[in-house]
């Protein structure tokens, strides 16, 4: 099977869906780039080059460069979605979604409910999340908890190229608004990706490692850190299960609960700041529904409650790393609380 990067996989998903369905359009700032300039069109193909080449095939009516107007991009995508298109809106950095929250939260997410189930809003909002490229406070956040919180939105966080293609095709075919969050440090990671189109259902977690001693639930880039820890500890005879939920809304609660019921120990890793993030959400889920299985307190590994800093020393300290996750695994393994009480 051919190796493709996350970037290529997303491009291929877009291309295949645009070929299959003439109502699929891409809209955003510099999704082609170069319009109105003195040089070439398709100069950017998205700020990360993800949509490069698509305008050549599908033309400017379907690969739509816009002004820098997040509200208009998002609103146009939502409005087009209710009237016969399947737009994929690109909003570059998730931080910029602050400009157009209304169009996402109050409009796209709510049409179906407030219109009594009569609206369909098949829009995909692509955006980048994550620290790690020295982009500082307004280009580095992980805001998936905010979107996850809003009923009516689905939230997807692919961690590898195979998942990126299958989840994006699913997102495009899905009839609800989907926020598709790509971690900016993962674009070049390669994986076996089928040439054919395929879909990965939402709410279906991926067990990236199977183990019996501890469960680690990670999100987005944190899955890779969890895998690294699992592989390291396997050599030391500690069997770590790693769950990548793939989507935070819907969340595969069954997979998480089933795993914790087996292992009795849980570490959750989320790159978002600590309050009301997915680590809290998963910890609460397990405390509520699998408390009896727990052999140790749940550990949450997250970023601190600060904006993302710029200086390399500070940013490196900000991002949860393998050392912290490994320490947490040891901590839950060594905790004798429950066993001692019995």
């Amino acid at each position: 099977m051919p190796k493709k990067s996350v970037r290529q996989a997303i491009n291929e998903a877009l291309r295949q869906e645009m070929e299959r369905d003439p109502t699929v359009v891409i809209i955003g700032e510099d999704v082609a780039g170069g319009q109105g300039g003195s040089g070439d069109v398709d100069a950017y193909g998205g700020v990360m080059g993800v949509t490069k080449g698509l305008i050549g095939t599908f033309g400017p009516d379907r690969v739509i460069d816009t002004p820098i107007s997040e509200s208009a991009i998002m609103g146009a995508a939502a409005g087009a979605a209710t009237t016969g298109l399947r737009p994929v809106a690109e909003l570059m950095f998730v931080d910029f979604l602050g400009v157009c929250f209304d169009q996402i939260f109050n409009q796209a997410a709510k049409f179906r409910y407030m219109f009594g189930g009569k609206a369909r809003t098949p829009v995909v909002i692509r955006s980048m999340i994550g620290a790690g490229v020295r982009a500082a406070a307004q280009h580095s956040q992980c805001l998936h908890p905010i979107f996850t919180h809003v009923p009516g939105l689905k939230v997807v966080m692919p961690t590898n190229a195979y998942d990126a293609k299958g989840l994006l095709i699913q997102a495009i075919r899905d009839d609800d608004p989907v926020v598709f969050l790509e971690h900016k440090t993962l674009y070049d990671i390669e994986d076996d990706v089928p040439d054919e189109a395929y879909t990965i259902p939402f709410g279906e977690a991926n067990f990236t490692r199977e183990g019996d001693d501890v469960t680690i639930v990670g999100f987005s880039r944190m899955v890779h850190i969890a895998n690294e820890v699992a592989d390291k500890l396997e050599d030391k005879g500690i069997s770590v299960e790693v769950i990548d939920p793939r989507t935070t809304s819907p969340l595969d609660e069954e997979a998480i609960l089933e795993s914790v019921e087996r292992t009795g120990r849980l570490v959750v890793v989320d790159e978002a700041p600590p309050r009301c993030n997915l680590a809290v959400d998963v910890a609460a889920l397990v405390a509520d529904k699998a408390f009896g299985s727990l052999k140790a307190p749940i550990k949450r590994i997250t970023a601190p409650h600060t904006p993302v800093p710029f200086a390399p020393t500070l940013e490196d300290a900000y991002i949860p790393n393998a050392g912290r996750v490994e320490a947490a695994v040891h901590e839950v393994l060594e905790s004798g609380g429950r066993a001692a009480a019995e």
């Binding site: 939502a78 409005g79 209710t82 016969g84």
Partner: peptide, 12 residues
Amino acid sequence: PLVVGAALSAKV
């Protein structure tokens, strides 16, 4: 902005 989207549908 939503109406811009409806107009975009009509155009595309």
